[in-house]
Design a binder for these strands. Structure first.
Lengths: 339, 339
DNA sequence: CTGAAAGCGCTAACAA
DNA sequence: TTGTTAGCGCTTTCAG
């Protein structure tokens, strides 16, 4: 049973395609009541669905939005994308999902394709610190709303919805200080970007950090382990760790295990995002057992971000000229979780 | 800068749109070499990209596939969808993602929309045990490949890629037996479906289960806690637990904590999928501390599923008449992890 | 009120 | 080897 077209319906109803189109689109029309009812009935009977491709071609909008993230399976992206998708589908939009793999070339390919598809908006966590900013700007300037999420490009015109890394970090640092930490170490990623720098800045807002208190590692567990062990061995009284991301936690726990240091009793810590716990064998498990009480995590407000994103799009769709200020949501400090 | 069309390019090159179309589509053509070069150059210069909407309308294929799952942020869906997306984009397809929320009405809406979009294939984990099977069948019969993942519909014609719940369960049960379990309890969800029933059947293949050894709960933590406590209190020597899903693990741990029973020393367990650990407060944490050594989990082969799925689609696209047998991948038993 | 007709940008059959 | 032309299914003037 193939899909029936407008023309089919018009034929069966003995009216013009125009009439059918108007009735079915609830256009502000003047069409006889009986004719209208007839059309509606036949359309329903044949389960008429407009060909969205043809409609898009005519209207020059796809009824779809593009979402481009480095890796949709990490961090809070799955949840964020899900919430967006549900909110947008309720408004008649479907969601095309793209993994840029944090690679500008791949991202470019996706962006070009999405543009050729005339998606109605672009939601993006830009790869490689904005390598495709010029292309994004071009898309933006043709009238397609572009919204950055999670990451942002300070010198570009597009709006963004992100976690306020600076304020959130400061709060985290203050939390540690209140718990009695007198000497703070900052454990972060070697590969920097705007978002991570904001987090570092936030901690600096709260405490003085000497260069040697800032431990930057590639996110390779062994290296983190080593560097942390070094620091832990000669740590002063009342030391504490601020983790730029809890991706780094397993390495720190490895080090703690080496010197039989329990956390948080022996070493208060706090870090961004729920850690991912993967246990391969007994050693790993022993590392995780160094956690002897719940520790706080700085958790990004995913639902808030999704809500703001959906709202931005809804408003933009209704009134393209609407102006928006960027949204920086503070993260919340909550108990340890491994979701 | 708006996008240039075939006609624009044809105009600038002083040739027909046909020529441009043919050259740019690498059709098996007979066109002069200089003309071809000219066209290619101009197209490149103006960064020509075909309007995919127009192309789709003509070709009646969208260059996109639809993925419909109950909740794209849970289980292994994020990873699975990501792998599929990457593989398919490399072959020129984008991915439209849909959350059915395990709700047939919502799923139907999505399916109808995807159909009106003429997606080239449908990958779906059907909601509510196949409530939309008739619609799916209609779509399938119009020639759109339909592939079930994770869940399947035994009496429908579509191919599927799933975990072999029966074999995997049996292996899990055997694993417990080898570890010395003489008396097995099965902890499962009250709400049954084909996939879960397969798991139960697998355990029954390995051991005799009396009705009272099968504990079925709503996935509400308090209920699991209570029922498990009951069973644990009067458990025989060498008892062990098989968890139909590690979603149920927190409740079991709560019960273990009540009677100060450590796991796995005091009670060997095994269960499907990595558990999600969320710690809200000290009590929760204490429950998790009842795990005193790594426990095995039955982990689904996500990469394998993604690979099979991508392959199925690739072959179907190349040769729509190709026949496929359903794929049932055994899960692997590996150490505890909380990803 | 109503319908005929002109496209949207692309492809493909058919002429030339 | 090339170009003309007729649509794909829908929306939207613009005459009737």
């Amino acid at each position: 049973m193939s899909l029936s077209s407008l023309k089919d319906i018009a034929g069966k109803a003995g009216v013009s395609t125009t009439a059918v189109s108007k009735v079915l689109n609830r256009a502000p029309i003047r069409i006889g009541d009986e004719k209208r009812r007839l059309i509606v009935n036949i359309a329903r009977k044949f389960n008429y669905r407009p060909n969205l491709i043809a409609r898009s071609l005519k209207r020059k909008k796809a009824g779809a939005i593009g979402v481009v993230v480095p890796d949709m399976s990490t961090l809070f992206y799955p949840e964020l994308i899900r919430l967006m998708e549900v909110a947008l589908f309720a408004r008649g939009y479907q969601t095309v999902i793209c993994n840029s793999q944090d690679n500008a070339i791949c991202e470019k390919e996706h962006l070009e394709t999405l543009r050729s598809r005339f998606v109605d908006a672009l939601v993006i966590a830009p790869a490689q610190n904005g390598a495709n900013a010029p292309l994004l700007r071009r898309i933006y300037e043709t009238g397609t709303p572009v919204l950055c999420i999670d990451r942002y490009l300070p010198n570009e015109p597009f709006c963004y919805v992100i976690t306020d890394g600076r304020i959130s970090s400061r709060r985290g640092a203050v939390w540690l200080i209140k718990r009695g930490v007198k000497k703070m170490f900052y454990l972060g990623e070697r590969q920097r970007n705007q978002v991570l720098d904001d987090r570092l800045a936030g901690v600096k807002d709260a405490v003085k950090l000497l260069p040697k208190d800032i431990i930057l590692c590639a996110s390779e567990r062994g290296e983190i382990h080593e560097k942390c062990l070094d620091v832990l061995r000669r740590r002063p009284q009342a030391a504490g760790f601020f983790l730029e991301s809890n991706r780094l936690l397993p390495g720190l726990l490895d080090a703690a295990r080496d010197i039989n240091l329990t956390i948080p009793d022996g070493l208060p810590i706090i870090g961004f995002d729920p850690p991912v716990m993967v246990v391969n064998g007994a050693e790993d498990f022993a590392s995780w057992r160094m956690l002897t009480a719940p520790v706080p995590v700085i958790k990004q407000n995913v639902a808030g971000m999704a809500e703001k994103t959906a709202k931005y799009l809804a408003v933009k769709f209704a009134k393209p000229s609407a102006k928006f200020s960027p949204v920086r949501l503070p993260a919340e400090i909550s108990a340890l979780s491994f979701p």
